[in-house]
């Protein structure tokens, strides 16, 4: 399955400045492994202890993967995967 992955500003150091890159896989986990094979270091920015990082949001098309199986979320040919760091914080 070939998908297009949108890369946020802060991770573009891993993609030579590219805003979107192609990747392949049948699940989000496979897509991330494929991304990491071509853009070393990306996986460590997205996955921690086998789960998605709490403050990174990943969407398959319009759906937040947290509500679609997390790393096991299915992706289909032509899907758009969007990575966005959370905008969050707090006084404590």
């Amino acid at each position: 399955m070939a998908v297009t992955v949108s890369i946020p500003t802060i991770l573009r150091t891993h993609t030579g400045g590219e805003k979107s890159v192609p990747a392949a896989g049948a699940t989000l986990a496979e897509v991330i492994d494929d991304l990491d094979a071509n853009h070393g270091g990306l996986k460590a920015r997205l996955v921690k202890d086998g789960a998605l990082h709490r403050f990174v949001n990943i969407y398959v098309n319009d759906e937040d993967v947290r509500f679609a199986g997390g790393l096991e979320a299915k992706v289909a040919d032509g899907d758009n995967v969007t990575i966005l760091p959370a905008v969050a914080g707090g006084a404590l």
């Binding site: 937040d64 959370a86 969050a88 006084a91």
Partner: peptide, 29 residues
Amino acid sequence: AARSPTFYEFDSADLLRLYREMDANDEVP
């Protein structure tokens, strides 16, 4: 989305909409 006196977080669907809109307008935060 946290509705909290000590934490804030953009709702994840709002966040996606916001960044798509900014992208379409050639805007940045």
